[in-house]
Design a protein around this nucleic acid. Structure first.
Lengths: 124, 124
DNA sequence: TGAATATATGAACATATATTCATTTAACCT
DNA sequence: AGGTTAAATGAATATATGTTCATATATTCA
């Protein structure tokens, strides 16, 4: 152990400096696929905005329509609708139509769990 | 129950349309503070980028220096350093200096838990 | 059918963000 | 001290993102 020697990576051109090749290789082995990283980061990302976080936290407890959410958040209905589309695209919320009103609710138990873990975080 | 009447919110000017006032009020009661929403969304946000997600997933298992991470990610050391600063600002990673090398590691068990829940999500 | 309501959508704009490049700080070694 | 390595930082730039406004779709009701 102790001090480490710099080594190179990536074959021929060898531009990259590495101090702990073993750790880099370990990280490479343990990493999940690029596709899973994309999916996972897009889920965190959609929660990474105060308005959207409030949306899912509300939908975790009760079904709501666009204008309810808009009132709750102090946002335009259009803005809320745009955000809800992103949730739908990721299949994180589902919608149910009753006449003119469309009710939104959470459609992913893992997201609810992510929220719970997050809430534990801030309540300490 | 059944169909609902639109009501108004926000006192005097009463611009906002609401269909289910009870649900909006319930959401208002159950929401966490603005400060906690800010903190929580900033944590999700920092995980909501593929490169940063890989960084924390790597650091979950092993201590790494900037140039190791850069090699692992295929990014510039400068880019990695910039991202690590954001993690430090949120107190999510800690660093330890050994000579010229600075070792980074996760500094928040909740974040590790968030990652575990996320990994369960994609592995199904 | 026609008016009204609830939501969705597209374009545009202003802000936020990630990376790059150049420079700086800090530690090591001779 | 001078040279080298590891990392941090600031400015600049290109891209991404959130909201607004105007318009479109879909449903209800008269």
């Amino acid at each position: 152990m102790g001090s480490a020697k710099a080594k190179c990576l990536d074959g021929d051109d060898c531009q990259v400096r590495v101090i702990h090749l073993d750790r880099v290789e370990q990280a490479r082995r343990e990493t999940v696929s690029a596709k899973e990283i994309e999916r996972l980061s897009s889920i965190y990302k959609i929660l990474g905005d105060p308005s959207r976080l409030k949306i899912v936290m509300a939908l975790k407890n009760v079904e709501m329509c666009v204008c309810d959410l808009a009132a709750f958040l102090g946002l335009t209905e259009s803005a809320v609708s745009h955000q809800l589309r992103r949730f739908r695209d990721l299949a994180l919320v589902k919608s149910r139509r009753d006449g003119q009103v469309i009710y939104y609710s959470l459609d992913d138990e893992h997201v609810a769990e992510l929220l719970n873990v997050g809430l534990e975080h801030v309540s300490e």
